[in-house]
Design a protein around this nucleic acid. Structure first.
Lengths: 248, 248
DNA sequence: CGCGGCCTCGCCATTTCTGGGGAGAAAAGA
DNA sequence: TCTTTTCTCCCCAGAAATGGCGAGGCCGCG
């Protein structure tokens, strides 16, 4: 490796270090926005976005997408169409957009419109999950051919994972009102009840499975519903699931 | 900074690089075990453990804890007592053991017993969550005073986060992947129906919201139920949620 | 052009869930 | 020790969901 190149690399590393340090100190939206732009420039890519979906479905984020696109995305509720969301929601690990399912009419229409707003044809997204069903996605996207993109992601994978986490940390600082929504834990019996209900058991079946009377079971369901702020059983099960209190 | 120290640092970095590369290639338990030990030596700490809890409650892991301790932990179902698990389960971010709640009889007894098995008084754990309630914890632990530990975690935070992710990646390779039964897509109306039901709306409310008759709504619910292989509405909503077909 | 999928609407009877009460025992924590 | 939480059981009536029957129009695909 030539001396110059090594020097450049070292200088580059230093630049990234500086941005990361700023990211770690960041506590306001504008700072995160600025860091996003610096990182975009550093990586020499088209876009870089952090997108957060709370357990209640609210979403927000920051990054380099145009305001038009963000607004349209929220307006049109593209959360429910976006293959990146759909795909990453079921995945553990960072994923290249190429590996997602872009067949399907809605997906292709979405893709076309996204590219109209300057979103790249290539992308790489890092999913992060929270304890109560929160879901965040850190995405870099770019317009280039497959080989170039593969090289980029291979080279910067580690940095991207780290940045995703730092963004996530910063985003949580932004959001102060998590506490009230902090999941009140369910009692073991309540967890049992919710779990079997989520598995499709009727109340009678759950009661029999747990060897308790159906009346008793009802008390659990009701108290779980109360704790979860749910208006009916289905709602309670949905909340318990998306807050990670039960697993099926 | 002296030249020698810089050299040492660089050499150290190279050593870590080598271990990480091995970790990234690892695909078998023994390799991961070996990497754990190398990392322990590299960081000069007492223990380093990766611990995985699957959605069905099964747990496994690898690391440098003694077999005796691991066996005891599993036997005694310490998962339900361990403040590290309890604490990290509700947290987004890596956490220092000092910040956990060690009051409580069971917790203190657990702590005492753990230290008897050589687990350090200091620890730092990185939680990682999966799409279906999986929960993994990467932990480093050591015996030292607070200041030394604070310095260590501050210095190696980034590396630890990365290692946690690489371990996680490798652990997933280990796991005989349960075939993620191809989620059959729901029609848009079915998605609407499931979504509102998951939000706690009654049938009548959903029908009104979607401006369709309640009977039509029933057809959607039934076809969604059929597609999802669910026996009732709650079951269908639960499946739609955990397959990521709907988001609330 | 037929086939399948999607969207829309109706009636019946039966089962299941929900909301409002009340009450005692056991276990865990402060 | 005392308090709180958890677990267990019981009543009733009204609301909601389910299962099974049928019907027509619209769209895209091969």
């Amino acid at each position: 490796m030539g001396k110059d190149r090594a020097l450049t690399q070292s200088r580059q590393k230093g630049r990234l270090e500086k941005i990361l340090a700023e990211l770690e100190r960041a506590s306001e939206f504008d700072q995160l926005q600025s860091v996003s732009e610096q990182l975009r420039d550093y990586f020499e890519i088209d876009h870089l976005v952090y997108h957060w979906v709370s357990s209640s479905g609210q979403q927000y984020g920051f990054g380099t997408y145009s305001d038009d696109w963000v607004q349209r995305y929220v307006e049109k509720d593209y959360l429910r169409v976006d293959p990146v969301i759909q795909g990453c929601y079921q995945r553990f690990h960072p994923v290249d957009w190429k590996r997602l399912d872009w067949t399907g009419k809605a997906a292709r229409a979405f893709q076309a419109e996204a590219q109209g707003f300057g979103v790249g044809n290539q992308g790489y997204s890092v999913p992060i999950r929270g304890p109560n069903g929160q879901f965040a996605l850190f995405t870099v996207s770019h317009n280039c051919d497959d080989a170039t993109w593969a090289e980029f992601t291979e080279k910067n994978r580690r940095e991207l994972i780290l940045i995703a986490h730092f963004f996530n940390h910063a985003a949580l600082e932004l959001e102060p009102d998590r506490a009230p929504e902090q999941a009140q834990a369910l009692s073991p019996r309540e967890v049992d009840a919710m779990t079997f209900l989520a598995m499709g058991y009727s109340r009678a079946q759950v009661a029999e499975t747990l060897s308790i009377s159906e009346h008793t079971l009802r008390v659990y369901i009701e108290s779980a519903r109360f704790k979860l702020g749910a208006v009916n059983t289905t709602h309670a099960v949905a909340r318990a699931l998306s807050r990670g209190l039960i697993v099926i």
